[in-house]
């Protein structure tokens, strides 16, 4: 998340006030805000489990945490997939004879 090479030129007028968004700090702040919201949300649900927040009487508590863990695992498993079945970007193009230069796969 480096700073733009040429910060002003070509930036759309509507986007000028938002140019700080691409900084690393903005990202970090966003992450912290998100984390606080998520933790607060789950905490609230754990505390109040009979006030209409919990969906089904038999299931209460922060069960939405599990899909989050699953999402994280899925993202990490992506590395496995890349390792297993990824080929160079022009794999099919090369196979079809559209790319002719040296081999690097």
């Amino acid at each position: 998340m480096t700073a733009p090479r040429d910060p002003k030129s070509g930036v759309h007028p509507l986007a000028r006030p938002l140019s700080g968004l691409s900084s690393l700090r903005a990202g970090l702040i966003t992450l912290i805000v998100l984390a606080v919201l998520v933790v607060a949300g789950f905490a609230l649900e754990t505390v109040i489990h009979d006030g209409g927040l919990s969906k089904y009487p038999e299931v209460y508590g922060p069960y939405e945490l599990l899909p989050l863990a699953a999402a994280a695992v899925a993202i990490l498993l992506g590395w496995g997939l890349v390792w297993l079945v990824s080929r160079s970007g022009d794999f099919y193009a090369r196979a079809a004879g559209d790319v002719k230069e040296g081999e690097d796969d």
Binding site: T30, L31, L68
Partner: peptide
């Protein structure tokens, strides 16, 4: 909303 914010957090952390 929890799901949404949580996934955003996971995505952001990754």
């Amino acid at each position: 909303s929890q799901l949404l914010l949580g996934t955003m957090l996971v995505f952001g952390l990754a």
